[in-house]
Design a binder for these strands. Structure first.
Length: 474
RNA sequence: UCCUGAGUAGCUCAAUGGCAGAGCAUUCGGCUGUUAACCGAAGGGUUGUAGGUUCGAGUCCUACCUCAGGAGCCA
């Protein structure tokens, strides 16, 4: 770009002397003692008389520059000295290893070109000092430039890729369900509603599960990966109205196979996050020993076919979990005693997960508190063949799954018992009319997984632009 | 939907019912190893909105608005 925006014209970095290599801060360690060019922004600037310490960022990281007045052209020194924070620029200099620098490297600045200078009258609104949640969320489009938020979004990207590649590597076919749906999947949650031409109401999907059951019957092993929407007026650090979910569905898989699958799946994601993001997790402030404990004992390429239990996530039946909660209440660790037959509340889940270093799998809940399509346990038909996976450190349920009802008559009866419109489920019942087979699947909320792996206080930081009860801007 | 809490300078926060304050940011000056740099100076206010009590309200009362934390429900 040849934009100088009112400042003294600079020569372009490439015209100064020898051609330089354009690189990124993340890769700067490969260019020690070389002359390189970075393209980014001025993150911070400290001045000490005739010595400037600009900190540059380029999206991949930050690095401190050193600019002694006596050793650079006056134009470079004066331009940088009065440059406003977050102004965009390219900078050329020599990379030097320096033990005083947090990252281990510094840049001896030789030249720079300002791309856009932010005027003093309208300074960059986000300071390096702490700010309130409301202010930061109102400026989310700028907040994501900070090192910590950028690091979180990089880890999120890896988690999403690791989740998809886990299934891709095992022969699953990605089959994404529709986002616009004609009716409520499970008849429970509040849905976002809209007019759909002359066809009446349509709704934003709350889960693609029923549709992936259909694609599984076509393709065997499938998964979906996309956004889902809940219009529930939940107002907690664990809830978004729009979030991403990955949902595998597998024919001829029972609950035990599903639990193995979920365990291998989470192990893979945690392993990839640790492999690729040690630096980012450090910026975020996550204690990685807690993640290492999750995958301890697992084999890097284990869990083939979901038949082997490798890293040993603890498994509790609903009854066992209930007993633990009763005991915790008696010892004064829980305020309210869990009532047998009820679902677990948030404090209950937090307590259960806090008892283990690994995610805990709670299975076979009472059918009455679970969705209509879950297969009853043949050993106790009052229980459903389902599993919730609770993340460690109180991050709550990150996976919910079950074996699905494959018997036509039972499924139809359940639809009627839940007072769901039978005609809307005819296509779903067709899956049991025509070559029904046992099958299972689960769904994992990406954002809760990111919040857990990054150790975040609030789920709103796990997605570039969070949609919550009282926020839809920016 | 319910419970609790908070709205004062661009940002983070002070101010017993009695003159509207500080730090950061911005501007100017100083400083050659700073790590949210530091030191000095300047500018910057309809105290969320509307009423009420009072000689006097940022402070007390009422309603509303906005936001946050939690519950329920969920991933």
């Amino acid at each position: 770009m040849a934009i100088e925006n009112g400042i003294t014209p600079n020569s372009s970095p490439t015209s100064v002397s020898s051609p330089t290599r354009i690189t990124t801060i993340a890769e700067i360690g490969e260019h020690v003692d070389e002359r390189i060019t970075l393209r980014g922004w001025l993150y911070n600037l400290r001045a000490s008389g005739k010595l400037l310490f600009p900190i540059f960022r380029d999206g991949s990281g930050t690095i401190q520059g050193v600019v002694p007045k006596a050793e650079v052209p006056e134009r470079v020194f004066e331009t940088l000295k009065s440059l406003t924070l977050e102004s965009s620029l390219t900078v050329t200099g020599r990379v030097r290893a320096d033990s005083r620098a947090p990252s281990g490297y510094e840049l001896d600045v030789e030249d720079l070109t300002v791309i856009q200078r932010i005027p003093e009258e309208t300074p960059y609104p986000i300071q390096l000092k702490e700010a309130g949640v409301d202010f930061l969320m109102e400026h989310r489009h700028l907040w994501i430039r900070t090192p910590r938020q950028s690091a979180i979004l990089r880890v999120r990207a890896t988690i999403m890729r690791a989740a998809a590649e886990f299934f891709d590597n095992r022969g699953y076919v990605r089959t994404d369900p529709p986002i616009l749906t004609p009716n409520a999947c499970e008849g429970t949650s509040e849905l976002f509603e809209m007019e759909y031409f002359d066809e009446g109401k349509a709704y934003l999907t709350q889960s693609g599960q029923l549709y992936v059951e259909a694609t599984a019957m076509a393709l065997g092993r499938v998964y979906s990966f996309g956004p889902t929407f809940r219009a529930e007026k939940s107002k907690t650090r664990r809830h978004l109205t729009e979030f991403w979910m990955i949902e595998p569905e597998v024919t001829y898989m029972d609950l035990d196979g599903l639990m193995n699958l979920a365990e291998c799946f989470l192990t893979h994601i945690v392993r990839r996050a640790l492999e690729l993001h040690a630096a980012d997790l450090k910026i975020i402030g996550k204690d990685v020993t807690k993640l290492e404990a999750v995958i301890a004992g697992s084999a890097p390429n284990g869990c083939e076919d979901g038949r082997e239990q490798r890293s040993g996530f603890p498994r509790l039946s609903y009854d066992q979990a209930h007993a633990m909660l009763i005991e915790a209440h008696q010892r004064g660790l829980l305020e309210n005693a869990h009532r047998y037959g009820d679902d677990f509340g948030s404090p209950d889940e937090t307590y259960l997960s806090s008892q283990f270093a690994k995610p805990v799998m709670v299975h076979r809940y009472p059918a009455s508190v679970k969705a209509f399509y879950m297969q009853p346990d043949p050993l106790d038909p009052s229980k459903a063949l389902c599993v919730d996976v609770l993340a460690p450190e109180g991050y709550g349920e990150i996976i919910g799954g079950s074996q699905r009802i494959d018997d036509f008559d039972l499924l139809r009866r359940r639809i009627e018992e839940h007072h769901l419109p039978l005609e809307a489920f005819e296509w779903y019942l067709d899956l049991r009319r025509y070559g029904s087979v046992p099958h299972s699947g689960f769904g994992m909320g990406i954002e809760r997984c990111v919040a857990w792996i990054c150790g975040l206080e609030h789920i709103r930081e796990t997605i570039p632009f969070a949609r919550t009860l009282h926020r839809i801007y920016p």
